[in-house]
Simulated scan of single mutants.
Amino acid sequence: MYTYSDVGVSFLLLFISVICCQMLRSVSRLLIPPEYQQYSSEAISTFQLVVGFMEGDIILELLGPWGYATFLFFLVISFILTFDGAADPGNTFFNYLMGNIDGGTALCRVVFQVIGGQFAYPWVRALWRAEMSTPHANQVPFMDSICPSCLQVPLMYGAMAELLATFTYSFVLALDVVGGKLERYVDAGTQVVIIMIGYTWTGMMFNPALAAALTFNCRDHPFYEHVAVYWLGPLAGVLIHSILIKSAIEHGHIDDSFTVKKKLYEMSHKIVSSKSIYSCSLKTAKKDD
């Protein structure tokens, strides 16, 4: 049975993490040369992404699926308002395919996204070990054990689920149904719906950096399975989406390819591909230290 104080602790820890990330962003802008700030932005944003969804596991335990869905919606909105990086290799891959960035830049961004996600786990573990609430204290013993695999379906089905989730999300955003500031709510709502539909299959992350932070090296989850489901699946979805966009440009269904490419590039920095681990890491933790 949850108490308001337990929920309040989760929001407090999340607030502390967001403030620390904002401070890191300010410091990085002062100390890091402008041409390299994109990489620090990716690391910090991915760090914040993983921290947010790890704290979301406590909310899931306290408030159940619908409470978690509500939390997730506002969490994604907070990401959109604070992130200055894509925090998703899928977005980076898309920008590479559309010719907005070169291969070296894309690879460096992905590396820093993965690194940022890896730093989130020890940060959350340190916060939870403060045992500011009973739910957090109860999770501490599990954080030093090896997590079970999130994949609850055969490998091929899991990869297809991640592919379809990524493609659906990208396609809905590319439609630009509402535009303007309302687009952030479409983004958040789309993610919540997709996650709620498919969380029991793969954890429905459709973000390789998030998956690398939370499922890599889990029990009964070999390396090839992780790559096939959580990397090749989402990236294949991005590839299909980019092919459709390019085809629409070439056949004149989209008038100005430069404008479209510019809009999609800007969208990939405003709209964060942040995903949920929903039920995977609840009761368990990450890696064997």
Rank of each mutant, 00 (worst) to 15 (best):
Y4T: 02
S5M: 00
G8I: 06
S10E: 11
S10C: 06
L13K: 09
F15K: 00
I19H: 00
M23F: 13
R25Q: 10
L31T: 15
I32G: 10
P33G: 02
P34R: 03
P34V: 10
Y36N: 15
S40D: 15
E42V: 07
I44F: 00
I44P: 03
S45E: 06
T46D: 10
Q48F: 13
L49T: 02
V50Q: 03
V51E: 08
G56I: 12
I58S: 03
Y68H: 07
Y68E: 04
A69H: 02
F71K: 02
F73C: 09
F73Q: 04
F74K: 05
L75C: 01
V76N: 04
I77D: 10
S78E: 10
F79D: 08
T82D: 09
A86V: 09
D88V: 06
P89A: 02
G90N: 12
F93R: 00
N100F: 10
N100V: 01
D102R: 04
G103R: 13
G104V: 00
T105I: 14
A106K: 08
A106H: 00
L107N: 06
L107I: 10
R109G: 08
F112D: 02
G117C: 05
G117D: 12
A126W: 09
L127A: 11
W128Y: 11
R129H: 05
A130V: 09
M132Q: 04
P135M: 12
P135C: 05
V140H: 01
C147N: 05
P148W: 15
L151H: 07
Y157E: 04
A159G: 04
L163T: 01
T166M: 15
F167Q: 07
T168I: 13
S170K: 03
L173H: 11
D176F: 02
D176W: 02
V177S: 10
G179M: 15
V186I: 11
V186D: 05
G189C: 02
T190N: 08
V193I: 01
I195K: 03
M196Q: 06
G198K: 00
T200E: 13
G203Y: 07
M204T: 12
F206L: 00
L214M: 05
N217L: 01
R219W: 11
H221S: 04
H221A: 09
F223D: 09
Y224T: 03
H226L: 07
H226V: 01
H226G: 05
V227N: 01
G233F: 04
P234L: 14
L235R: 15
L235C: 02
V238M: 08
V238A: 07
H241I: 06
E250R: 05
G252S: 12
G252L: 13
D256Q: 09
S257R: 03
F258I: 10
F258V: 10
M267A: 13
S268D: 08
S268E: 10
H269S: 01
H269M: 00
K270P: 09
V272M: 12
I277M: 11
S279M: 08
S279R: 13
S281K: 11
D289E: 07
